[in-house]
Write a protein that binds this DNA or RNA. Structure first.
Lengths: 150, 150
DNA sequence: CCAAATTGGTTACATCTGTAACCATCCAAA
DNA sequence: TTTGGATGGTTACAGATGTAACCAATTTGG
């Protein structure tokens, strides 16, 4: 049966499965910040990044949350429009602006944190202990693998 | 330190990590079918679905490859434009069309299959045996979990 | 010093996507 | 039968995205 070799089973193909799963999880989670705060994913990541790290430049934000600079730029613009963050020019390098959440922005962030954690816990809660451990390990290994340092 | 509870570490947050990883893998793989065949992801999935299963309706395609019907519709239209697939009206239900790859379409599919398998193998090859097993298990468990049957 | 390359960030444009509205067709109940 | 709802599929429209071009400021190398 040579045919077997010539067929790819989509349902078990790793890139497909991985993407599909991530898409499901991400969409499900997105409903929370979208319904509650009306944010897009890049906007949520920006909020989350600044909430976590305090003050960052756009570039740092992009690195921390794996976003292309155009996404960062637009997300920052939108959050600024809402007055959820402020830009402070850098003294020494005038290309750079330091971004930080305003009180309102921080409040939105603090509003989301427990919801995010609950979501994650609920998801992980459906797995046995071993699987929970395993998944953390595996994500790391796969990341290294894809980044070519595996 | 109450602050700890109020912070979410994005880098270890499951939805983020999962999505980021899937995005990396998917993008890397997409380069192959994009460079080689000029396909988008929905188009690749359509090609792959029909290559694997022979003849399907648009609805079946969407179910098999987890695509919204608009994506299917557009991908099918594009592949038809290239004459990579044909539509055959159903005898009994005139809303339905049966889709199948043409010779050209099949050739493109057969061209991609070994590349796809090689990509997957290369990725998995960077993991130890245990991890390879584990990942298959885990993807299934997480899928069940997110779909609420966990 | 000064030109050339680099960097942080924004914008324009074309493409892709999701939602909702839509069109046929089919089915089910009266 | 007719009629009201489902169903398969397409389309319109508004947003989101990626690529590339761009601008200004900075660094580098001569």
């Amino acid at each position: 049966m040579a045919r077997q070799d010539d067929v790819l089973e989509l349902e078990t193909f790793l890139p497909y499965r991985l993407y599909h799963l991530a898409d499901l999880v991400s969409r499900e989670f997105a409903r929370i910040y979208k319904d509650r705060l009306g944010l897009t994913r890049p906007e949520w990541r920006t909020l989350s990044g600044l909430g976590q790290s305090g003050t960052m430049t756009a570039k740092e934000l992009g690195e921390q949350s794996a976003m292309h600079k155009t996404k960062v730029s637009r997300a920052v613009a939108e959050l600024e429009r809402r007055r959820w963050l402020t830009r402070t020019p850098d003294e020494k390098d005038r290309r750079i602006e330091h971004l930080a959440l305003t009180k309102t922005g921080l409040a939105a962030y603090l509003d989301m944190v427990p919801l995010a954690k609950a979501f994650e816990q609920e998801l992980l809660g459906k797995l046995d202990n071993g699987s929970r451990e395993a998944i953390i390990q595996l994500l790391g290994k796969l990341e290294s693998a894809i980044l070519g340092r595996g």
